[in-house]
Write a protein that binds this DNA or RNA. Structure first.
Lengths: 190, 190
DNA sequence: ATGTTATCAGACCGATCTGTCTAGTTGCCA
DNA sequence: TGGCAACTAGACAGATCGGTCTGATAACAT
């Protein structure tokens, strides 16, 4: 039934959208740029996704999945106890900062361009729920007395690390945030 | 020499640009919207600012000045020692979160829309320098052993509080960040 | 061989964008 | 009063946007 290209039209479009939207912003990247990079006809894009908004939704969903899976994988490999992992999140985040095409949190950038509406809003909300539960689950597992408080503090730290690394072009911020996280975890256990 | 309107053309344009750019984003607000809200002719805008980019620069410069002056004023009125002020920054920041039209950090949102180029980049860089020196000066004045380390931690926390309050629509984040700041300050003195 | 389906290439539509330009109006000053 | 400068209103240019549509091509199933 499907034409057998090296990769499907959908995959090529998503890959192109991911690179372009993340690097240059959603609003400022035109449909024509996306299809050109994907090597796909315009009609194929609209047959596959229906609208730019749906392409944006798929782009953010992919970012979310990728981030979540990478974090889970790295945390499991690198650290053993929940308490180690609470601070480890910031070291793993630092790996992302050091990547050459890092340009800040995709959800923040997408949300900053408002107007895009429902697709961005919903994807961002899901992403925020994940961030919060990431820390809350670890705080619970670590057995800290007030997991909710610690989790909220670490969410703030996590957000801030991403912003600082981005705006200051400084990947070493991860060392600072990891140090602060360790201090906050210690205080929470004291 | 100047026409005596209730407010000058420049002031009206800046006020309109400030409201619209901050509320809806820079790229998605057209020149026509700005002049309509300002009640000013298009030619007047281009006579006064020369280009949209210069209007954006003036908008961000105004935001920077306003933020800096408000922070200095509130810190001086509400707190006495540098150590109190280090955590006080986050409570003052929380006042901004609670304002009805709060929509995150204007410099983050502007930077997220890339493409705008030099004007945004330069204004953001100046803003970042101010944020950093705000904490560094207070940390020095407080006599903490490693002021640079504490300052960098608090910058991360400051950035994160702004993002969390914005993305989670939750002004109470300021209590969390202020609490974390106190803990980090205490640890830095220990 | 034929028909179906997916794809491609690109013209086209209506809207919107920044920025320029023309004309007419207002208000100050000598 | 006459002249100058600032201002207003809006047409216009040139580009780009998202999205639709036509027509040709290629691959596959029957």
């Amino acid at each position: 039934m499907e034409t057998r290209a090296r990769t499907s039209v959908r995959e090529r479009l998503l890959a192109a959208a991911d690179e372009l939207f993340y690097a240059e912003g959603i609003a400022s990247v035109g449909i024509d740029q996306v299809i050109k990079r994907a090597g796909v006809a315009k009609a194929s894009l609209y047959n596959t996704f229906g609208s730019k908004d749906e392409l944006v939704r798929a782009y953010l969903k992919g970012r979310h999945t990728q981030t979540r899976e990478r974090m889970a994988r790295e945390l499991e490999v690198r650290y053993r106890t929940p308490r180690e992992r609470l601070a480890g999140v910031f070291e793993v985040q630092g790996l992302i900062f050091a990547e050459p095409d890092f340009r800040g949190c995709a959800f923040m950038c997408a949300s900053a361009e408002s107007e895009t509406g429902e697709a961005v809003e919903k994807a961002t909300e899901e992403y925020r729920l994940w961030v919060h539960s990431l820390f809350l689950d670890l705080a619970f597992a670590a057995g800290v007395p007030s997991p909710e408080t610690l989790a909220r503090q670490l969410v703030v730290l996590y957000d801030g690390a991403g912003v600082s690394a981005w705006l200051d072009h400084d990947a070493t911020v991860a060392k600072v945030s990891a140090g602060a996280a360790k201090a906050l975890v210690d205080v929470a256990f004291a």
